[in-house]
Structures are given as structure tokens and as C-alpha cells.
Design a protein around this nucleic acid. Structure first.
Length: 408
RNA sequence: CGGGGUGUGGCCCAGUUGGUCUAAGGCGUCUGGUUUGGGACCAGAAGAUCGAGAGUUCAAAUCUCUCCACCCCGACCA
């Protein structure tokens, strides 16, 4: 991509109607645009990052047998009434169709997925089933805050599993837990992300959150350094030692919830009277699990974790482009390198704009591609370019002919 | 939803004891030229119903009332 053609551009100063680092920086760097409180447009750079994030999630959820579907945003009132949430879920956006029929915008999808699976899974032979979607969720949060961390409209991967018995759910739950850590590992967040014990509601002792430590986090958690697990503030009263090793010395930290997995038991299947026939022909309860992870929130979290005073430092797995190519008055040679790298399958953002060197450097640091390739009169004299990692201070001269191999 | 704060060209902001505001400056944008190793320089230009509405006044960005939007703290986050 040539930067002269990229929609949109960077800002020198952040708009003052955001104070969180992730929102300020993503807006300044041209990844997102703010539409209202907790409502954002994802611009080309931002959407590229989002696609990288969702693809990684997709791969790992597919690997544990999740099948991707896409459910509607518009969910009829009767579905919510069936589970009692029409009146109890106060973050629902409700609206009325031209036929006076009422709907709520999808804030979560147990109300859609449960009757969906019910139409197909009559027998133990069909089970277990796990389906998921990556879809925009709408929640009427009383206070949106912290940029992408808590929006009123946000992207969510929600996986739902249906089982014939508790042991099967328990086993699958552990598989998904492992998949989540693989996902965080690929975002470079595994070290900072703690499996966190949270309230399990009526059907299990605990649910599990995945909390990533950030200085600006909205949640308070109590971590055990030895076991790399934590306890959420809501249950610290009853669980004041490490749930794994019973270490009583838990350290309070601030985190952001980047995932949540939940054993739902029969709560939703019962609401829809969803049962199956076992081998003896007897009717049995369906046991459910649900597993959420928010790609847009993750994007904000990654920015909160990976940055310096100059801008973002994207992990290579989610960077909008791998390479930012800067030309200092060597446009002809730079274009050749751009084409060579692109043909080699390397994602390049080529800054072909007629700007001062300092401005190009500043933008490259702000946008945060992992590698910066610089070509100037100085480097061209020795048939080279200067290669610098965004995360590191030093740069090295690389022969132009070796560049593709170096970056592959 | 309770408390606090802020609204002035696309962005940052000066002005807010009413009058000299026909609203200043910086960034960005456009035109022309000179520039190019860390946010260059010169010359010129465009761009604002001062968040909205109502009111007070000879006179309102400035005072009053109502509303709206956004930010922060808290509550909430099934």
C-alpha cells in the first residue's frame, strides 16, 4: 500500500475528547475514528489489525472444533422473554419494527443459538456441537469508557457448546481454556494474561476470566505469581488464597478482561425446553457452555501494552503491515523495493509522500509497523537499505538484494 | 444512573470582570517556490451560524435559563 493513497492520515495532537491511551493513539495514528461515546469506525489501518486478530481467533477456535456461523443482530422480543432477560438485562437496546413487533439488538446470543441448535440436535448422536460467530455486539452501557476497552458497540467472538453431560462439557471447557491461552500467546499477551477465577453464577463454583494486566485496567484482580492465576475482586472475600496452590499472598493488580468462559449448565437449554434422546430413548438435559473474547477490546489492550512515548509497537502477528518503507528522496529505488517486497508476499506500507524526513519517521513510529526500511542517498551508495525494528533502537545496513530473505 | 468537568474552523487552543471580536495563534488543507537523516522555510489563500434553543441588553463567544454532546470518578457490567 502506498501511503499517499491511504485513507486517512495521522494527527499531531490527539483530540481531547479521549483520554485513554489506546483511543488517543489509535485515533492519532489513523486506525479508528470516533463517532460517539463508545462508538468507532475502523479505518483501513484499524480494520487490517482487526482482521489479523479475528483470523488468529478463528484459527484457534476452529482447531477446537468450533464451526463458524453468523447470527442476526436483530433478535425478537419473544426470544428474550423465554429466558427472562427482556426485563432483566438492562443493557439491551430495544426497538420496535413498523409492525409494532419488538426487538432487542444482539447483546449476546444464547437466545438465538439455543433455539437454533434445538432445531437440529434431537439425539445424543448429534452432540456435542460447538458453534461460534464473530459479530458486532450492542450493549447500552451506562458509561462507555477507555476507548476500545468498553464500547457500546464492539466486536465479539462468542462460542457456544452443547453437551450430553457435565463431564463432556468439563473436558471441552478445558480445551477452550487452552485455546484461549494459545490466542493470547499469539498476540504476545500470554505473560501478562492471568486465568482469573470469578463468580460462577448459579451453576458452577467459578467462571473464568482472562485478565491482562495493564496500568489503566478497570478490574481489580489478585494474582498468584507462582501459578499465574488470579482471583477477581468480586469473589476475593470467599476465595482469599490462590485457588491452585492456596498461597495466601496474593498481589493486587489492575487488569482488563480480555475473555470469559462460562459453564451455563441447563440455564438456557431449560428455558427453551431443549432436551435430547439418549441411547435408551430417554429425554435428557442439554448442558451448555459459552466462551467470549472481544477482538476490538483486544486491539485496545494490545495498544495499551505495546507502545512507547512515540506510538504503537505492534506485535508482528497483528501489525497492519509488516514493513514500513521510507524513502528519503530516492523514490525510484524505493518503488522498486516496494514492488519486490510486495511480490514476495511481504506486507509493505510505502511512504511515498513528499514530506520531510522527520515527519516520515514520526509517522512510522506512531503507526508502529514492526520493521522500518529506509532508503536514502547514503544507503543507496552501498546498495543497501537501513533496517530497524520498531521495538529496538539500533538499525543495520542490509544489501538490497538480501532484503527479501531477511524479511521473509 | 449519582457526582465533577469541558464544548470556539478538520485537530490543538487564546479570548469568557459584556463594547476595541468584522473572533487571535499553532497544526493541517490549497497555490507557487525553496527544501528532505527526526514533526523544514518563504509568500499567498480558503475555512467558524463561538454545542443548540430561548431570554436579558443599545450591545452577548462573554450574563441567565433549558436542552444536547463528550470526558473523568463512582455505581452497574446479567
Amino acid at each position: 500500500m502506498k501511503q499517499s493513497q491511504l485513507f486517512t492520515r495521522t494527527l499531531k495532537e490527539a483530540p481531547k475528547d479521549e483520554t485513554s491511551f489506546n483511543a488517543q493513539t489509535l485515533i492519532r495514528a489513523g486506525f479508528i475514528d470516533k463517532v460517539g461515546a463508545g462508538i468507532y469506525t475502523f479505518l483501513p489501518l484499524g480494520l487490517r489489525v482487526m482482521s489479523k486478530i479475528t483470523n488468529i481467533i478463528r484459527e484457534e477456535i476452529n482447531a477446537v472444533g468450533g464451526q463458524e456461523i453468523l447470527m442476526p443482530t436483530l433478535v425478537p422480543k419473544e426470544n428474550w422473554v423465554a429466558t427472562g432477560r427482556w426485563d432483566n438485562f438492562d443493557a439491551l437496546f430495544k426497538l420496535q419494527g413498523s409492525d409494532k413487533k419488538e426487538y432487542a439488538l444482539g447483546a449476546t446470543h444464547e437466545e438465538v443459538v439455543t433455539p437454533l441448535i434445538q432445531k437440529y440436535a434431537f439425539s445424543y448422536k448429534e452432540l456435542p456441537i460447538a458453534v461460534y460467530q464473530i459479530q458486532t455486539k450492542l450493549r447500552n452501557e451506562k458509561r462507555a469508557k477507555a476507548g476500545l476497552i468498553r464500547g457500546r458497540e464492539f466486536l465479539m467472538k462468542d462460542l457456544y457448546s452443547f453437551h450430553t453431560n457435565q463431564a463432556d462439557l468439563d473436558a471441552y471447557y478445558e480445551k477452550v481454556k487452552d485455546a484461549y491461552f494459545k490466542i493470547y500467546e499469539r498476540f504476545g499477551l500470554a505473560d501478562l494474561t492471568y486465568l482469573t477465577y470469578a463468580s460462577g453464577g448459579a451453576f458452577s463454583k467459578y467462571s473464568h476470566e482472562f485478565q491482562t494486566l495493564i496500568s489503566d485496567g478497570e478490574d481489580h484482580i489478585f494474582i498468584c505469581d507462582k501459578c499465574h492465576v488470579a482471583v477477581n475482586r468480586e469473589i476475593i472475600e470467599e476465595q482469599n488464597t490462590c485457588p491452585v496452590c492456596h498461597n495466601p499472598k496474593l498481589k493486587e493488580e489492575k487488569g482488563v478482561e480480555v475473555g470469559n468462559i462460562f459453564k451455563l449448565g441447563t440455564k438456557f437449554s431449560a428455558a427453551f425446553d431443549f432436551r435430547y434422546r439418549d441411547q435408551e430413548g430417554q429425554e435428557q438435559d442439554i448442558i451448555m457452555g459459552c466462551y467470549g473474547i472481544g477482538p476490538s477490546r483486544l486491539m485496545g489492550t494490545i495498544v495499551e501494552v505495546y507502545h512507547d512515548e512515540k506510538g504503537i509497537i505492534w506485535p508482528e502477528t497483528v501489525a497492519p503491515f509488516k514493513v514500513h518503507l521510507l524513502s528519503l528522496n530516492e523514490d525510484e529505488a524505493a518503488l522498486k523495493i516496494y514492488e519486490t517486497l510486495t511480490q514476495a508476499g511481504i506486507e509493505v506500507l510505502y511512504d511515498d509522500r513528499n514530506l520531510s524526513a522527520g515527519e516520515k519517521f514520526a509517522d512510522a513510529d506512531l503507526i508502529g509497523c514492526p520493521y522500518r526500511v529506509l532508503i536514502s542517498a547514503k544507503t543507496i551508495q552501498v546498495d543497501s537499505v537501513e533496517l530497524k525494528k520498531r521495538a529496538e533502537g539500533k538499525s543495520e545496513l542490509i544489501k538490497i538484494k538480501d532484503l527479501v530473505a531477511k524479511l521473509k
